[in-house]
């Protein structure tokens, strides 16, 4: 049955988790691409070590089997091998550490001034998004709540516990600043395709800067246990072309300012 599902029945929404998924989701930001590249780099060393250690282990088990070799040789010392097996394992972590740190610091760095700021505010148990770059007073801002769609209301093709009523609309190929904070308990804001997993800590504003490279809909889930409905606070980011973003925002914004 599972195999059947694997072969035919999985309709994979590209940027959401799929059943029995083992690898990462497709990268949508340079950050995620970097993470995946690092993963592959490290896996090279990992496989190398795995093969080497397995070989030693199997050889030892084979050659020193009690039936084959009832009296083990009394080797207690070997300077050469001891130097080698100390130095090599200490060089390998270095090769892993260099790209790892490079990626870590490049992820933190904000190189370019962001073009828009979006505030992702976690609540028990929904999310509020504020677009306040276009305000002219403290009161009016483009703010909306994003609730998960209950299981009964799902339409065909929508993912259970992943779909929301109001998606975060962001422009593609644009530097975004996302300010993550909760209004009550710790939450988090995580979108695997964009390589983002940022805890939302009460009283603190965490910044993540991403640049989504392609249009699409990206799904994520809360990654910080935040109460009973923790499973029902998904994140859906919709990346649209820049010009569409402009019209979307102005369409949503202008009725609001008209009221105010």
């Amino acid at each position: 049955m599972i195999v059947l599902e694997w072969l035919f029945l999985t309709i994979a929404p590209c940027d959401a988790a799929e059943p029995w998924q083992l690898g990462s989701q497709d990268a949508a930001t340079p950050m995620m691409q970097g993470i995946m590249d690092l993963h592959h780099d490290i896996f090279f060393f990992l496989i190398l070590i795995l093969v080497f250690v397995s070989r030693i282990l199997v050889r030892a088990l084979w050659h020193f089997h009690y039936k084959k070799n009832p009296i083990p040789q009394r080797i207690v010392h070997g300077t050469t091998i001891e130097i080698l097996r100390t130095i090599f394992p200490s060089i390998i972590p270095m090769f892993i550490a260099i790209p790892s740190f490079a990626l870590l610091y490049s992820m933190d760095e904000v190189v370019v001034d962001p073009a828009i700021t979006i505030k992702a505010i976690g609540h028990q148990w929904y999310r509020t998004y504020e677009y306040s770059d276009y305000n002219s007073s403290d009161e009016q801002s483009l703010t909306f709540d994003s609730y998960t769609i209950p299981e009964d209301d799902l339409e065909l093709g929508q993912s259970r516990l992943l779909e929301v009523d109001n998606r975060v609309v962001v422009p593609a190929k644009t530097h975004l600043r996302i300010i993550v904070t909760p209004a009550d308990v710790p939450h988090s804001w995580a979108v695997p395709s964009s390589g983002v997993k940022c805890d939302a800590v009460p009283g603190r504003l965490n910044q993540i800067s991403i640049s989504v490279q392609r249009e699409g809909v990206y799904y994520g889930q809360c990654s910080e246990i935040c109460g009973t409905n923790h499973a029902f606070t998904p994140i859906v980011v919709e990346a649209v072309p820049r010009k569409d973003y402009g019209s979307r925002v102005s369409n949503q914004l202008i009725p609001q300012t008209g009221e105010a």
Binding site: D108, D113, T174, N206, I208
Partner: peptide
């Protein structure tokens, strides 16, 4: 210019932007 927001501030280079605000 509409797609413009508060620039990156060298006084607040870290993830924590609480003080920035």
């Amino acid at each position: 210019v509409k797609l413009e927001t508060a620039p990156a501030d060298f006084r607040f280079p870290t993830t924590n932007q609480t003080r920035h605000c």
